[in-house]
Amino acid sequence: MGKTFQKPEALSDQPTHYCPGCTHGVAHRLVAEVIDELGIRGRTVGIAPVGCAVLAYNYFTFDFQEAAHGRAPAMATGIKRSRPDLVVFTYQGDGDLASIGMGEIVHAANRGEKFTTVFINNAVYGMTGGQMAPTTLPDQRTTTSPFGRNVDEVGMPIRVSELLASLQTPAYISRQTVILPKYIVKAKKAIKKAFTYQLENRCYGFVELVSTCPTNWGLTPVDAVKWAQEHMLPYYPLGDLKSPE
């Protein structure tokens, strides 16, 4: 009898360091499945961010580089420009990408770099212990906004997908989520589409994944999903924002 279900070849056997209920594991698996299905493991280079996913390379089985905080898109640019035959993706959180790395992501997208970004948006800094991110929702409490995000002082959360979609350069920009099984198939489709556009040398691909961070939200994994549904999804609506077609 043949196997009906197995771990993707692109995923390693190592147990992850992620917290219970964290959605990084699902996101990693989707990326690995897409890489397997496209048969590109042997020519893919991933770029790890600084944040919870800094050790992402431990969970994948292909070449990886580790960037400084926010600089993954610049590294990806250097790789892809010097080796256009490689498949390159950045895997970045919202502190990394939307705060310190805002310059790099905007310019990489605007140049139409032929790589792919998987953007994990959980509205908080994870690894450093739950500080406010540019994506933290209004009134959301974090360790550096103990009274809730005061939008009069620090502005409204940034919708990165919308911001990137406003650029005139053709790109594939999509916001999906991995908080519940019903969304996961769509999320995988978007990731696959983004990689496919890269393989066709067509355009930059950006897939935002609305995610949970039960530990830093101070919620159980189940309550975190509920909170994301009630608060994240209305502010960060799902769907394709831009397509090169």
């Binding site: 770029i47 610049a74 250097g78 790789i79 420009r81 490689l86 310059g103 310019h107 140049r111």
Partner: peptide, 26 residues
């Protein structure tokens, strides 16, 4: 060859890093 004007010196240093990490002369 490949020429690219980066958006900042910070970004440029990581473009260098990325290509250097691939073993390319950069």
């Amino acid at each position: 060859g490949h020429f690219l004007q980066g958006e900042s010196e910070v970004a440029v240093s990581y473009m260098i890093f990325g290509a250097a990490g691939c073993g390319e002369r950069v």
